[in-house]
């Protein structure tokens, strides 16, 4: 890194005669940066590439090819087999519903709370912030039985609602902090202007502030989505009598158990279960650095 920054052009005017040398050095530095980043990235991505490659290998190829991610003979049958056997399409729909529901619920609860905590003053505000900070540190012990009892009391057992609500609750605190940070750095004049225009409290939030927090909505949405998509224990417990409500990770778990020696098959299943979330990530990722930047400013 020191090497890379060191290659940055030094400021100030330079004698004209040295310019070509500087340009060449600058170009070399840039190429070196790219080469290093590409090598690092390749190492970083290697497990993905290897899994992807192995998912197309035959069982023998898997053993004989070792580190080489490129299959000698491409076999697509792992995918059709894994797709059919694991009933991924059923789990896929449930997972989308759970992840989507968790995202909506989390965004609603945390953006509203983040807004009032950041932009309004009310008795008890500090106590609320203190409470949610403490939960970040509290041990999450054997809480599944109390949670289960509450969900039973609400008559939500064996519904996707239960999964959505419990799942959302697990990531509220951090999301609230992010929204708080984001709203507290937004220009006050926007709000004032809205008020001058006669906007009510609700209109100000829903029509003005929330739409302006797009990058943070994308960021929190993405984080929530990743967590909900990969969650295993919560969907397992709250859909225990309704296997038709299982999500991908739960289905994946049985799939792993049933095919524990068909490794190319396992690789295909892993790719299938990861692919959607990777795509969602690729679509949303460009927002979220901006979103986070908004939250940490100030």
């Amino acid at each position: 890194m020191a090497l890379l920054t060191a290659r940055r052009p030094a400021p100030g005017p330079r004698p004209a005669g040295r310019r070509p040398a500087v340009n060449a050095r600058r170009a070399a530095g840039r190429s070196a940066t790219h080469v290093l980043l590409l090598i690092g990235g390749l190492i970083w991505l290697f497990p993905f590439l290897w899994t992807l490659g192995s998912s197309f290998k035959s069982a023998d190829g898997f053993f004989s090819q070792g580190l080489n991610p490129i299959p000698k003979h491409v076999m697509v049958s792992n995918y059709s087999g894994a797709w059919k056997e694991a009933s991924f399409e059923k789990y896929f729909v449930n997972t989308v519903l759970v992840a989507g529901g968790a995202v909506v619920l989390t965004l609603a609860a945390t953006s509203m709370a983040g807004y009032v905590l950041a932009r309004t003053e009310f008795p008890g505000r500090k106590a609320v912030i203190g409470l949610i900070s403490v939960t970040l540190f509290l041990p999450h012990g054997y809480t599944i039985i109390p949670i289960f009892d509450i969900v039973r009391g609400l008559h939500l057992l064996n519904t996707l609602w239960a999964v959505i609500i419990v799942q959302s609750s697990s990531s509220l605190v951090f999301a609230t902090f992010l929204f708080m940070g984001y709203f507290s750095t937004m220009d006050r004049e926007i709000e004032d202007a809205a008020r001058v225009d006669g906007a009510s409290f609700h209109q100000t939030f829903w029509r003005v502030m929330l739409p302006l927090s797009g990058p943070m909505l994308a960021t929190v949405g993405l984080f929530t989505c990743i967590t909900a998509w990969n969650s295993f224990f919560i969907p397992l417990v709250f859909t225990l009598s309704k296997p038709e409500l299982h999500t991908l990770p739960v289905g994946m778990y049985s799939f792993l158990g049933q095919n524990s020696t068909d490794w190319t098959f396992l690789c295909a299943g892993s790719v299938i279960s990861l692919l959607p979330i990777v795509v969602i990530f690729l679509l949303l990722q460009r927002y979220f650095v901006n979103g986070l930047a908004g939250a940490v400013k100030g």
């Binding site: 509203m112 409470l131 949610i132 999450h140 609750s169 409290f201 939030f205």
Partner: peptide, 25 residues
Amino acid sequence: WSYLYILPLLALLLTFVVYPIFGSL
């Protein structure tokens, strides 16, 4: 309105995070 806006968060947090922690205590 501030209280109303914070209500969903607090309800979820108290019901599904704080209470279970103390329940398991």
